[in-house]
Amino acid sequence: MSILFNRDSRVIVQGITGSEGSYHTPRMIDSGTRIVGGVTPGKGGQRFAARIGDRALGEVPVFDTVAEARERTGADVACIFVPPAGAADAIMEAAAAGIGVVVCITENIPVLDMARAAAFLKEHPARLIGPNCPGLATPGAGKVGIMPYHTFKEGRVGFASRSGTLAYEVVALLTEAGIGQSTCIGVGGDPIIGTPFVECLRLFERDPETDAVVICGEIGGSDEEDAAAYAKTMRKPVVGFISGRTAPAGKRMGHAGAIVSGNTGTAQGKVEALLAAGVPVADTIFDIPEMTKQALAKVGAR
């Protein structure tokens, strides 16, 4: 078992007929993901024909609501490509319909919309990944989101990153070094996200198919510090990396959540917290594969 998503997962795509949804849905299918339907309000009853170039990848039904899609398809995972103005609503709709894992790719969601959605999720429990993230991938089972799946490799290292493209870089390096991954999670670059590092670590710690975890953090907030505190109690080794060491204080570095405010959120503070918890921190991403190998060797992993 990987975490959050596996071969048995049944996935629906919210915003399947939009430009992002219609581009990425066939690519998810191509990676092996079982897409069972899509949701676009007003387009219920249509069928979405998935194709990449002239390669047809089958058709899935489109529904007006998530509730209907879930009832008719038995979906347990939702992938959201809905534009920012409606994305938080889409998250709440999925949670209310009983979808267990909600992956929101959408970027630029107003933060108070996310505050509302976060409060809603306390009463309608669903595991939210993102928003403002590339989604997740379980090599061998497929992907939910937009990750470049061909660079992934089946294996036993869990991976989580706040940045999408940085995740691709590091996963590619791991794969090149022969280190496969159990599940890769893009947790998202916003200040309010559903599943911070510490939650990913908890899931990986319980996963019998994960032997070690790599987390790629960045400046802003205290998710890495929280993760460090938990990592200290884990059986499985964790390897860390922090980007933004050269970022000046008070400047928002692209991600809404990537900002050093006062003394909080500095790269140095995060590196120190991880090191203090016994988590080795890579100086550059190129050091991550070797450090991961060492971590695996330490636990005598296969």
Binding site: S161, S163, G164, T165, E218, G244, G254
Partner: peptide
């Protein structure tokens, strides 16, 4: 670059 984390890593 593309992606905040990748650009930050590039700066580093």
């Amino acid at each position: 670059g593309n992606g905040a984390g990748l650009v930050m890593t590039t700066l580093d």
